[in-house]
Design a protein around this nucleic acid. Structure first.
Lengths: 230, 230
DNA sequence: CAGGATCCTTGACATAGATCAATGAGTTTC
DNA sequence: GAAACTCATTGATCTATGTCAAGGATCCTG
């Protein structure tokens, strides 16, 4: 069967969890397998969305650009994560840009076939609702960070988040470049750099390139949650 | 019938559009009718959400607070608009505070009964998906504003939005106080005040209290979209 | 391994916008 | 109708962070 590889991937995607097996095969039959090189654009803000995407392997970033070209990253999506769904339920156009950070494999699901499936499978709808809700929650945090925290606080929050994602270990690697980190935190590389330097000097962390060690997690928490100064 | 008034309201809510009539009655039977005074809290960040809400009349604001008490407004919701749904699909806790701006009437829908209905009615799920998508799109704009625009640009965008909402008429009223406007734009009243003064002096708008007249819409567009300076 | 390219760091400087403070206008309350 | 608020405006500072510039480190690629 031509799509057996595709079915295997689809079965492992959280968004399709608890769907009957024959629907997975149905999905596989409508999925379009796409390959992108590092740096390639999947879609641009304002493009018409005729379906949505799920990352199979690699990494995609969703971002906005200002007039002067400053970038604000909204999400990074990795294997198993869907993106571009907003355009299929409302408004038709993508509200931001999507670009591959690495060489990336993506499945594209055309709108109509997918909506049909949604209509027949409440489970799928509930999965989708949960995903959108999670995303709204993430945005709430992003807005909070941008509006109510200073940059050191945002960075502190991100470091604590990375620690959590690494099973609570205080020694881990940055998963993105520092300039991408700046775009994610709503600032510029110079500022990130200066804050790293300060945190190192104050013994809050020990960092070397992308290797980070958290020495004083409590201090990071205060920076992030209590607006303490560096 | 005790709930006939409730049914009437429910039938007019966009979120329940296209639902069979008997389901509207079912909804009416689970809806809890709540009344709040101006300033009362509907829920606080971190509270467990056991259902979601729809505004019947009045106005509710959803907001975050910083450690020092600075407020960032995420949404205003008026008649017919649902809020607090995120907590029923994912995570269980409300990610922000909800407070009534006026005396407000709200219907509360308990989670379980509502999820049952979702499972049986794809239409309802699709309505909900559209609503969450719309909200994600709004957040994308908010993040863009906060991170990529300066305050005058954000205010310009808001004024143009108000004009649109008033059928394109260039003369309208601010729907919120200027200090609430500041919280919505991620700034403080002083800054909003200064920008209004400048816009008046430059003949871009003519404003008196809450009355606004747009004199140079093109200039506002440049401020908002092209990063032009005041 | 040479040559680019990109990324990172650090310094000197500029500035948008926050903070602090004072006053005035408008509105609710008793 | 006076008092007590809340809201709006304006001025004088202060500061976090952006901008510009330069040098160094690191990483690909041929």
């Amino acid at each position: 069967m031509i799509s057996s590889d595709i079915v295997v991937h689809i079965k492992s995607m959280p968004i399709f969890k608890n769907l009957p097996s024959h629907n997975m095969e149905q999905l596989a039959s409508i999925a379009i397998d796409q390959h992108f090189r590092r740096g390639e654009i999947v879609f641009s803000e304002g493009d018409k969305g005729t379906g949505f995407y799920v990352v199979v392997s690699g990494r995609v970033k969703i971002f906005k650009l200002s007039f002067e070209g400053k970038e604000q990253i909204l999400h990074f999506f990795g294997p198993g994560e869907p993106f571009g769904e907003v355009a299929i339920f409302e408004g038709w156009r993508f509200p931001a840009h999507a670009q591959c950070v690495n060489d990336t494999r993506i499945f594209f699901f055309p709108r109509d076939a997918f909506v049909d499936l949604l209509k027949r499978h409440p489970t799928l709808s509930l999965n989708m609702l949960a995903i959108l809700s999670m995303r709204l929650r993430k945005f709430t945090h992003l807005v909070e960070d941008l509006s109510l925290k200073e940059v050191p606080g945002r960075l502190a929050a991100y470091l604590l988040y990375l620690r959590e994602r690494n099973g609570g270990r205080s020694f881990f690697e940055l998963d993105i470049s520092k300039s991408q980190l700046a775009s994610l935190l709503g600032t510029i590389p110079e500022t990130v750099s200066r804050i790293f330097t300060k945190m190192n000097k104050q013994g809050i962390i020990h960092s070397d390139g992308r290797h980070i060690q958290i020495l004083d997690a409590e201090r990071l928490r205060c920076l992030s949650e209590e607006g303490e100064r560096l």
